[in-house]
Structure formats: C-alpha cells, structure tokens
C-alpha cells in the first residue's frame, strides 16, 4: 500500500525553488568577482590561469595603499567614537522607566537612517565647504566627524537590543546584595552588555568602511578611501585590480560579520 504523502502546514509549492534561485542570484556575482580576482588574464572573458598578479599590483599601487590606510583609520576612529557615545545613549534611554523626551532621543539617534544618504551628503558638502573656506582646515576631521555621526545608529541598535534583552532584576539583585551604583555597573551591567558593545563597534566599522556617497561628497582633494577610489576607477575601464581590492574588502567584511554573528548569539 502506498504511504500517504506527509502533510506539512508550512510547505508552499515553489517557495523552495524561488529561495534557492534567489540565494544563487545573491551569491553568483560575488563569487564571479572573487574568482576573477585570481585570473591571470586581463579580460573577464578569458581564463588565464590562477594568479595573484592583481593583488600584487593593487598592493604596489601607491594610491591603493594610501586609500587603504585612510579607510582603516577613518573606520577605526568613527567606530570608536560612535560606539562610546552610543553606549552612553543606550544606557540612558533603554535602562529603566520611560522619562520625558525619550521618544525624541530615539528619533534623533535614528535620524541618519531616515534621511536618504544623498541628502545628508549634500548637506555636509554645503556646510563643510563653508567651514573649509572659513578655517582653512581641510584635514581628515570632516570625514571622521561625518562617519562618526552616521555610524551612531548602527552602533546604538545592537547595544540597545542587548540592554533591552537584559533582565533588569539583575541590577536590582545587585543593589539588594549591597552593590553601589558604580559597582553594579562595573560588575553586572558592563559584563552583560559587552557583547552588544562589541557587535555595535563592528557594525559601525563595517558601515564606515563601506561608505561611498557621504565620503565622496565630504572628502577634500586627495582624500580617497578605498570605495571612492574604486568608484573613480569604474569611471574609466574596469580592471581586474578592482576585483582584487573588492575581494580583499569582502574578506574583511565577512570576517567582521561572522564575529558579529557569533557575538550576538552569545547567550550569557
């Protein structure tokens, strides 16, 4: 006798096929870039064998070197600054009872997520152009300020999520067990929120590292970061060197995201 086909409440015809096709579509172009970054031939239509030539060329390219150092410098500083202020803000807004103005603070912190990036970029261009003329300072400070600002919500969200998931009675328990406010923070709150802070810092770093539009508008002459350098290269011809840079950047992002993923899954 034929066994009756098992009924599943959740199985929808075709959904699996669409999902797998979509994942293929998401990853195929990325895989192609990675593969061709190791292609010895200059043209994408020819496979010339495995080679690290384009990595070597990118490595020796002075512009790429400078852009890399600048990208990492800006991203590190922006991540550090935004994480510190976001941690303080998260402690102020998510810990304890609602207070007057809390909704306003939420909205203000998430504001960079609401305005289209091109609009923020234009606004910063306008203001910083005047400041550059008025002060004569054209250094990296503008980029660091702009990146720190738009990284705040990205750093804030995982920290807030961590704090919201935190059992407030733990702090009450610490106070009950004779801990002062500062010792409660140091011995209970801080260790428990640490994974959220680390995750926020990493997200901020990735977001800053990947930014194109705001950087393109805010940077002074000769202040290319890796993404704006690549955008400039695309205007001319596509060279496999860009594939190599993309792959390297991709690798860094994936490493950081995996760390983020593991940290945010950490239970205790």
């Amino acid at each position: 006798m034929a066994e009756a086909r098992r009924f599943s409440v959740s199985a929808m015809p075709g959904f699996r096929a669409i999902t797998l096709a979509a994942f293929a579509m998401l990853y195929a172009p990325i895989v192609i870039i990675v593969v061709y970054s190791f292609n010895a031939a200059e043209s994408i239509s020819v496979w010339g064998g495995l080679s690290l030539e384009w990595y070597g060329r990118a490595w020796e390219n002075e512009q790429v070197q400078e852009a890399t150092v600048r990208s990492l410098l800006v991203a590190s500083l922006a991540a550090a600054i935004s994480t510190v202020v976001a941690t303080a803000a998260a402690l102020g807004t998510t810990h304890g009872a609602p207070f007057p103005g809390r909704t306003f603070i939420y909205a203000a912190i998430n504001q960079p997520l609401m305005a289209p990036e091109i609009v923020t970029a234009v606004a910063l261009l306008i203001v910083f152009a005047s400041v550059k003329v008025a002060t004569g300072y054209t250094g990296l400070g503008y980029l660091i300020l702009a990146h720190s600002a738009f990284c705040v919500p990205f750093a804030y969200l995982p920290i807030r999520a961590r704090l919201e998931g935190m059992d407030l009675s733990l702090e009450t328990a610490a106070a009950d067990l004779y801990a002062t406010r500062w010792r409660t923070f140091r011995r209970v709150t801080l260790p428990l929120m640490a994974p959220g802070v680390a995750a926020g810092a990493m997200l901020a770093f990735v977001v800053s590292l990947d930014d194109v539009i705001i950087t393109e508008f805010v940077k002074s002459a000769g202040q290319d970061t890796l993404p704006t350098y690549m955008l400039g290269q695309l205007r001319r011809a596509v060279t496999p060197e860009v594939n190599a840079i993309s792959t390297a950047l991709l690798g860094l992002t994936v490493i950081l995201l995996t760390a983020f993923f593991l940290l945010s899954r950490k239970r205790d």
Binding site: A88, A89, G92, I109, P112, I126
Partner: peptide
C-alpha cells in the same frame, strides 16, 4: 531624567554637528 539626558547628550551633539544640523542649512 537628568542622568539619562546627560548620557544621551554626546550622541545628540555628534548627530547635530554631523547629520541633522547641516540638513537645516540645506
């Protein structure tokens, strides 16, 4: 309330300088 606002202040100032404020100039 005062403590919470003080904690949020650095973030708000940073955002005012680097994001929201310039929008007004636009």
């Amino acid at each position: 309330t005062r403590r919470n606002w003080l904690l949020a202040a650095p973030a708000l100032i940073l955002l005012l300088l680097g994001a929201a404020g310039p929008l007004l100039v636009v």
